[in-house]
Computed example of a mutant assay.
Amino acid sequence: MKRVGVIGGGQLAWMMADAAQKLGVELVVQTPSEHDPAVSIAKETVFAPVDDANATKILAQKCDIITFENEFVNLDALSILAQQGVCFRPRLEALAPLLDKYDQRCYLRDLGLPVPQFLALDEVKNLKSQIEYLGFPAVLKSRRHGYDGQGTFIIQDFAALEQKLSYETTTKNLNQSFFLLEEFIPFERELAIIAVRSVKGEIVTYPVVETQQEQQVCRRVIAPAEITPNQVAEIQAIAHTLLNSLQVVGIFGIELFLGTNGKILVNEIAPRTHNSGHFSIDACETSQFEQHLRAVCGLPLGNPALQSAGAVMVNLLGYEDSHSDYQSQRQQIAEIPQAHIHWYGKTESRTGRKLGHVTVLLDNQNREQAIAIAHSIESIWYPR
């Protein structure tokens, strides 16, 4: 029986449980708190922050392979363990160009993949003249540790940029080099694809999905996306180019923009299972979580095909500070035909926190119906 160490104990690790049981894999988790979701499903837990390499050394002694639930790790410290023979999948060299968003942008650009125009603020001598070609509105991003909308700001003009940088650098003790600036893309839709690469170099991709964000946080995912076959082929080609270039083993989430001009641009890469792939648990023959474990354990990859005509996934986000388990709302949502609720068992709710998700299987590919179902779920979940 293989033992897989997982750095991170949130809901992404928690959702590996069913797949691990199915595959005869034991999960050992490194996470800071006994209240983190994956603690309840782990065979063993190393209680420590995810960037604590000493704890990862202990984790390595308890398992065969180490993988990642999030990317908030210390690569330099982990590389010492890798040199000592610890097996990381994906390999650390594949993570290195991705963890800093500026490095990631440069890597994608140098691969010839389409990305928005961007610049690193620490390289700018005359900021005002340099950003004129980007135009406003522009997007200011934290280079590290931004997720679920954290560290991403839409900037309307130069005065607002100066004000935001002043606030971030003084109140949070950050310097300007912590940020990059990129052009704002007027998009028709936001898209995503989950792609996995095996030890043997085989690549499997899931259906391209549409993601709908509010305040830079994913609210809904519609599978499959209503786009042209050529656009699907272009996105699949982007996934193949990226995964082969990185020689990665494991699953990646790739977020994209479909511009109003019909062009595809890569937004961000997540080197792990991803929110945009949660629909796969109920809607696909092989979930993204099983697929990831298959890849890192050297098992044959599974079939990613949809088993229904379509699906819509809705994130159940916190909207208050509370310790409620929202039983009555969950019960009402469960009564929706073909609805599957996944509740992460977090003990504390706060605004914007992902507490669970619900996937509804659809009998046809109808975007309007999917959006209507999503709104009906949200009308139950969020207080009027």
Rank of each mutant, 00 (worst) to 15 (best):
F118N: 06
L161N: 02
V124T: 11
Q83W: 04
P116V: 13
L98T: 04
L119A: 15
V86K: 06
N126P: 04
D103A: 15
T67M: 07
F153R: 04
R89C: 03
A77Q: 08
V115W: 03
T67Y: 02
A96N: 11
L81M: 06
Y107P: 01
N74F: 03
E69M: 09
E69Q: 10
L113Q: 09
L134W: 01
L161R: 03
D76S: 14
E132V: 11
K128W: 02
F68A: 04
P116N: 11
L113W: 13
L140P: 01
D157A: 09
I131Y: 00
F68N: 00
A94V: 00
A94H: 03
A120W: 06
L119R: 15
S79Q: 11
I66C: 09
Q84E: 09
D76G: 12
N70P: 09
L81H: 06
E123K: 12
L119W: 05
L78G: 05
L75G: 03
E123S: 11
A160N: 02
D76H: 07
C87D: 13
R109M: 02
G85C: 00
N70W: 07
H145R: 15
A82H: 05
I155C: 08
F118T: 06
R109Y: 11
G112M: 12
I80G: 10
Q104A: 11
L99M: 01
D122M: 07
A138Q: 04
R105V: 07
A138Y: 04
R91G: 14
D122F: 13
L119H: 06
F136G: 04
A82S: 08
N74M: 07
P97D: 09
E69A: 06
F153I: 06
R144I: 05
R109N: 13
A94N: 00
P114E: 14
D100S: 01
A94R: 01
T67G: 10
L111F: 10
P114G: 03
L127Y: 07
Y147F: 01
I131G: 02
S79C: 14
Q84T: 08
P90R: 10
A77L: 10
Q83C: 12
Y133H: 14
F88H: 07
S142A: 15
I66R: 08
Q84M: 09
P137E: 10
Q83E: 15
P114K: 12
H145K: 15
R109Q: 10
E69Y: 01
E71W: 02
L98Q: 05
N126A: 13
Q117G: 09
E93W: 06
T67P: 02
L98G: 04
A82K: 05
L75K: 00
D157C: 10
A94L: 02
P137L: 14
F72C: 09
Q130Y: 03
Q84P: 00
P97G: 07
D110Q: 11
C87H: 06
Y107D: 12
D76L: 13
N126V: 08
T152L: 06
S142H: 11
I66N: 01
R144N: 13
S129N: 14
I131M: 03
V115F: 00
Y133S: 15
A159S: 11
G151V: 05
I154C: 15
L78S: 04
P114R: 12
I131Q: 06
Q117T: 13
S129T: 14
C87E: 12
D122P: 02
D103H: 10
V115Y: 01
R91C: 12
L161E: 05
T152W: 04
L108I: 09
K125I: 15
R143Y: 02
V115N: 05
S129H: 13
G151S: 08
Q150N: 14
I131L: 05
K128A: 12
L113Y: 07
